[in-house]
């Protein structure tokens, strides 16, 4: 599966479940925007590896909404401790997806150091996660009974279309959406 197709599927899933999505720097943010630019999307264009932590903050602030962290495999490898933190807190409304193409797509497709990592065993290691599934399995679960870890194996090497949005604009658009959603 190409990353473009993965984000189209993730976006359709998010729309069905009224979900918020936090996407990592580079490929994930730009492919998410290319799939569909939504007010519910929080694109991270600076901090590599922070999507899982930011998504945890979004999840505790929006307990009635499903929150999806869309992480690159290289990015998540930089913040693996966040999986321990999420496992401990175990927010039911959080889903962490790793887009696993085994390369740094924006860095000439150099291999990531996590090529030997078995992402399918995350919920066995970090036991606060309810289950580890793939993109197909995502369709049949109850997204408010997590947290779930989704291992999405994708092809590498295709750069996404740019440019992204300005970080401050992304922040304010997302905050307005969340604040209005909570008052409705």
């Amino acid at each position: 599966m190409k990353q473009k197709e993965a984000f189209e599927q993730i976006t359709q899933f998010a729309e069905r479940h009224n979900a918020l999505i936090v996407a990592d720097i580079g490929s994930q943010s730009l492919w998410l925007k290319a799939a569909k630019d939504r007010d519910e999307n929080l694109y991270l264009s600076g901090p590599m590896g922070q999507a899982s932590s930011v998504a945890l903050g979004v999840a505790v602030a929006n307990k009635d909404r499903l929150v999806i962290a869309a992480c690159g495999d290289g990015a998540l490898s930089m913040n693996l401790t966040s999986l321990a933190t999420i496992s401990h807190v175990a927010p039911k409304n959080l889903m962490v997806i790793v887009l696993d193409n085994q390369v740094y797509e924006f860095t000439k497709s150099l291999p990531v150091p996590s090529t030997g990592t078995d992402w399918s065993k995350i919920s066995e290691t970090f036991t606060g996660f309810k289950d580890t599934i793939d993109l197909k399995g995502m369709e049949s679960l109850n997204p408010q009974e997590g947290p779930y870890f989704v291992h999405a194996e994708i092809e590498g090497g295709e750069l996404p279309p740019g440019p992204g949005l300005h970080p401050v604009d992304v922040h304010h658009r997302f905050k307005v959406h969340c604040s209005q959603s909570r008052t409705q």
Binding site: L56, V60, T81, T85, V89, K175
Partner: peptide, 26 residues
Amino acid sequence: FQYIPAAREEECFGIASGSAMSGQKC
């Protein structure tokens, strides 16, 4: 209060930013 014990301090800046960008104080 909800206290989120983080494994590493760098995560705290992500968690707090996610809360702040959702319009909640942290």
